[in-house]
């Protein structure tokens, strides 16, 4: 379970997050909405330890995000992110993008990692793209690679920043299926989106951020 308590974050004079608290059960899907500049990305960056909140606490399954003010490794292993830019490694093929982390962290042998990666790719219906470089993939395919790269580490919570902004209706529906599939494995999913119909498609809980607070 993800637990965010009294989170504050300012950039200079501008208060972006002003006392944010919420909880998310395992396997739950939540949509995070709000106007452009409302602080949605900032919120999930803070939860992922990419930005540092000014105050407040964050924990997943009772493991705190920080340890002596520094990112807690045990916590870090429980969060995954599919960022808006996806940030695939362009110099590595799909397989290496997915296996670099588990192999270099010695979580799996190369053979295990490749087997798991191939299974993930197959379930995402891009099993034939393992040897392709990211630049050769379509937007939707890239996104699925980013999902596979995050999922192979079995995070407890997976964050998506605007996963459908570049997709047509058919591809959006595919992403919705994908997210439901992820959630059915017990992974909690937080999705930043502007797209209300996408939230409805998922039947997900929605929270709206406005002036740094949760408005609903």
């Amino acid at each position: 379970m993800l637990k965010v308590t009294n989170l504050y974050k300012s950039f200079g004079e501008q208060t972006v997050l002003n006392d944010i608290s919420f909880e998310l059960a395992s396997g739950e899907i939540m949509c995070l909405r709000g106007k452009s500049g409302a602080g949605k990305t900032t919120l999930i960056r803070c939860i992922c330890n990419l930005d540092k909140a000014d105050s407040g606490t964050i924990s997943i399954n009772d493991i705190e995000s920080l340890e002596n003010g520094k990112p807690n490794k045990a916590y870090q292993n429980t969060v995954g992110m599919v960022s808006q830019g996806l940030d695939l490694f362009p110099n590595l093929n799909v397989m290496d993008n997915i296996t670099l982390a588990p192999v270099s962290r010695k979580l799996m042998t190369k053979e295990e990692a490749e087997k798991n990666a191939q299974a993930l790719l197959d379930s995402l219906e891009i099993g034939d793209k393992a040897k392709s470089y990211p630049s050769r993939l379509s937007g939707g395919e890239k996104q699925r690679v980013a999902v596979a790269r995050a999922c192979i580490l079995s995070p407890s919570v997976l964050f998506f920043d605007e996963p459908t902004s570049a997709l047509d209706i058919k591809a959006t529906r595919e992403v919705a299926n994908l997210i439901e599939d992820i959630a059915s494995r017990g992974i909690s999913v937080v999705i930043i989106t502007h797209d209300e119909s996408f939230c409805d498609m998922l039947g997900a809980r929605q929270i709206v951020i406005e002036s740094g607070k949760i408005a609903n």
Binding site: K73, D87, P90
Partner: peptide
């Protein structure tokens, strides 16, 4: 090099030296 590359590495728990030699340096 886009700072998203470093952040992706951090999110995946890849150590800085590994990320540098396998991802950042080749690019």
């Amino acid at each position: 090099i886009d700072k998203g590359q470093w952040e992706a590495g951090q999110m995946l728990g890849i150590s800085k030296p590994v990320l540098f030699f396998k991802v950042i340096l080749p690019q």
